[in-house]
Design a protein around this nucleic acid. Sequence first.
DNA 1: CATGAATGAGGCTTCATTCAT
DNA 2: AATGAATGAAGCCTCATTCAT
Lengths: 212, 212, 212, 212
Amino acid sequence: MGIQERKERERERRRQQIIVAAKRVFSEKGFTRTTMEDIAKEAELSPGTLYLYFKNKDELYASLSLRILQYLIIRLEHVNGNASLDANQKIDALVDAMFDVYEFDPLVIINMFHLQSSETLKNLSPQLLAEIEALSRKSLGLIAKIFEMGIEEGVFLDRHPFAMADIFWALFSGVILWESSKKIMDEKKDYLKQTLRVSFDIFKKGIQREDY
Amino acid sequence: MGIQERKERERERRRQQIIVAAKRVFSEKGFTRTTMEDIAKEAELSPGTLYLYFKNKDELYASLSLRILQYLIIRLEHVNGNASLDANQKIDALVDAMFDVYEFDPLVIINMFHLQSSETLKNLSPQLLAEIEALSRKSLGLIAKIFEMGIEEGVFLDRHPFAMADIFWALFSGVILWESSKKIMDEKKDYLKQTLRVSFDIFKKGIQREDY
Amino acid sequence: MGIQERKERERERRRQQIIVAAKRVFSEKGFTRTTMEDIAKEAELSPGTLYLYFKNKDELYASLSLRILQYLIIRLEHVNGNASLDANQKIDALVDAMFDVYEFDPLVIINMFHLQSSETLKNLSPQLLAEIEALSRKSLGLIAKIFEMGIEEGVFLDRHPFAMADIFWALFSGVILWESSKKIMDEKKDYLKQTLRVSFDIFKKGIQREDY
Amino acid sequence: MGIQERKERERERRRQQIIVAAKRVFSEKGFTRTTMEDIAKEAELSPGTLYLYFKNKDELYASLSLRILQYLIIRLEHVNGNASLDANQKIDALVDAMFDVYEFDPLVIINMFHLQSSETLKNLSPQLLAEIEALSRKSLGLIAKIFEMGIEEGVFLDRHPFAMADIFWALFSGVILWESSKKIMDEKKDYLKQTLRVSFDIFKKGIQREDY
DNA sequence: CATGAATGAGGCTTCATTCAT
DNA sequence: AATGAATGAAGCCTCATTCAT
C-alpha cells in the first residue's frame, strides 16, 4: 500500500511536470505552433511519455482548463456557501474569487479562454468536450445562483439569472482576451487588472435595481 | 487609363471573390482546419491564384477583419458626427452600430474576435499587425470619444474613457465568443442577440453617474 | 482537347511511374517494411506527390493487385469466349492464362497473393476491399464457368464448380507463395514454374471423370 | 534438483501462458497490428516479461509455428511408421493427419501459413529462420516419403516426390489461406473443411497412375 | 524473476507555398 | 494573370524494447 501510494504520487507528480511544461509552452506559442516535442523538451521527457499521461495534444491542452475550472468551482462554492453575505456582498466575493482564479494562474486562464473561444474546441474528443461543458455549466450555475438571490432579494434587476451569469463570464473572458491581445499588438504595460476592476464595478452598478 | 481602371476593377473583384470564399470556409472550419485549397475550391480558383492576391494564409485571414473594422469605423464616425445626440443617445447609437456591424456579417465578426483572441495574431506580419492595430485603435478611439463626452457632460462615471471603451469592446467580443462557444458545446438555440442586448443595457446603466 | 489529353497521359504516366517504383520496393521489402519515402525515392518524387495519386499506402499497395486482376480477367474472358474449345482444352487454356499472368509480372502476383492472404486486407478501405472482392469474384466466376462446362459435358467430376475454382485458385496461389517462401528460406534455385506445371497436371487429372 | 525441475516446469508453464495469449491476439489482429502490450495484457503479464521468454516479437510469432510444426512432424512420423498401410492408405492417413493438425489449432495453422507466406519471414533472426526451415524441410521430407513409396509401388505417377510434397503442402496452405481470406472479404459461412476435403480428393486422384 | 514506466526512432500524412507552363 | 502539380518540411503519434526498482 505504501508502494501503491508512492506510485500514485509519482504518477501525479509526472502529470504535473507535464502540465507545467505544457502551460509554459502553450502560453508562449499558442496551441497550433506548440509541438508535442516542444512540451516534451520543456518537461525534460521524451515525446512518447506525454502520451502515457495524455491521450493526445488536444486533451493535454484541454486538461489545463479543467484544472482551473475545478479550482474556480471550489471558490464559487465557497462564496455560495457563505450564508452571512447578502447578494451584493456575494457579488464582491464573486469578483474576489475571479481575481483569485486569475492570479492562481494567469497563463492558464488565458489558455482556457482561448480554448473556449476557438476552433480548438471542435477538435476535442466528445468526452473531454462533455467534461469541459459540465464544469463550465456548473460554474455558470453557481454564478447564476448569486444573481438569482439578488433578484429574489429585490436588489438586482429582474433579468434571467443565467443570462446575467453568461454576461458576467463573457465580460471576464472578454476583458482578459482583449487585454492580452492588446499586449500582443503592442508590448506595453499591462492594464488587465485595473480594467477588470473597472469592468466589474460597472457591471455591479449596472445590475442594481436601485442605486446603492 | 480606361484599361488601367478596368484592370484595377477586375483585380478588386477577384480579391472580393477570394474574400467571400475565405469567409465562408474559415467560418465553417476555423483557421487551422481550413486549407488554402479549400478556399481556392470555394472561390473556384486555383491555390496558386490566392497567392497573387494575398501574401499568405495569415494575411488572407486577417484581411477579413480589416474589412469589417473599416465598416465599423465608418459607422462609428457617423455616430460621432451626429451633433444632435447627447451622450446617452450616442451610447444607444453606438449599440445600434454594433448590432449593425454584427448583422453586416456575423461570421466575419466571430472570425475577427477569434483572430483578436488567438495565437494567429502572433503569426501575422508586422505590417498587417500594425494595420489591424491601427484600425482597432481608431475604433476604440471613436468609442472612447463617446464616453469622454458623457464624462464631460457629467452623465457618465468619471473613468478613463479608453478603459471604458476597452470594456465595452471586451463585453461585445466576450458575449459573442462565449455564446458561439456555447453553441459548439451544446447545439441549442441561439441567444446571442438577446444576451447582447441585456449586456449593453447593464453596461449602459453601469456607467451612469446618476440613475436615469 | 490536345492539352486535356496530354495532361491525362502525363497523369497516367506518373501513376505508372509510382506503381513501378512501388512494385519494386514492396517486392523487395514487403508491405510493412516499405516506407512511403522508400517508394518516393525509388520513383524520384517527393513523398507528398504519392498522395496526389494514391490516397494512402494501403491503396497504393492494393492498386498493384487491381491491375493484375484486371489483366487476368481479360485473359479469362478470352478463354471463355473461345467457343471452339472443349472443357479439357479450356483447362489447358486456363493454365496457359495463369502462366501468362504470372509472367506478366511475377513480383506483383506474389504481392497480390501476399495481400490476399494477409492481415493487410483488414486495413483496406471498404471501397478498395469491395473493388478487390469484385474482381476476385469475377475471376473466380470465369474460372468456375469452365468447370461447369466440363461437368455438363460429363468429362469432369461432379463437384460444385465454385469450389473447384476456389481449389484451382488456392493451388495456384499456394504454390506461388510456398515456392517464394522457400526461396526466402533458402536462396536456391527457382522451381516455381516446374512445380506449377506439375501441380496443374495433377489437378487436371484429378478432376477427370474418366481417365483421358 | 527438485527445485531445479520445478523452476524448469514453471518456466515452461510461463512460456505456454505467453504462447496461448500470443496465439489469440495474433489470430485476431494479425502480426503487424498486434502489439506486445496486447499480448502482455492477454497473458496477464507485463510487457517486459515477454522479453524474458522470447527475444523479440518476431521470435514469439514464429515460435507459434514451431509448435505446430513439431506436432505435425509427430503425426507424420506416426503415419510413416505404420508399416501396415499401402501408399494410398498412407495418403488417406496423411490427409487425416492434416485435418488433425488443422483442428489441433486452426488459428495457429493460419498464423503459420501467414508467416510462411509473408514478409515477416524476412525479419526473422537467422537461427529462427533456420529452425523453421529445418522443421519444414523435415515435414516435407516425411510427406515426400509417402509419395516416394507410392511411386515405388507403381501406384502414383512418377513425379519428383519432393515436388509432390510441395504441391500437397501448397494446396493445403493455399486452401486455408484463400478460404480465410474470403471470410475477411465476405463474412459468410465457412466452407474451409469441405473445400479442403474436395481438394485432397482431387489431389489424390490426380496422382494415381491408374484409376482406382 | 517480474514489472511497467520511459524511451526515442521512425512512419504516415498534411498542406502552405512555389514555379514551370 | 492563372494554373495546379509538385514539393518537402514538419507534426502527431505508435510501439518494440530497455532498465531501474
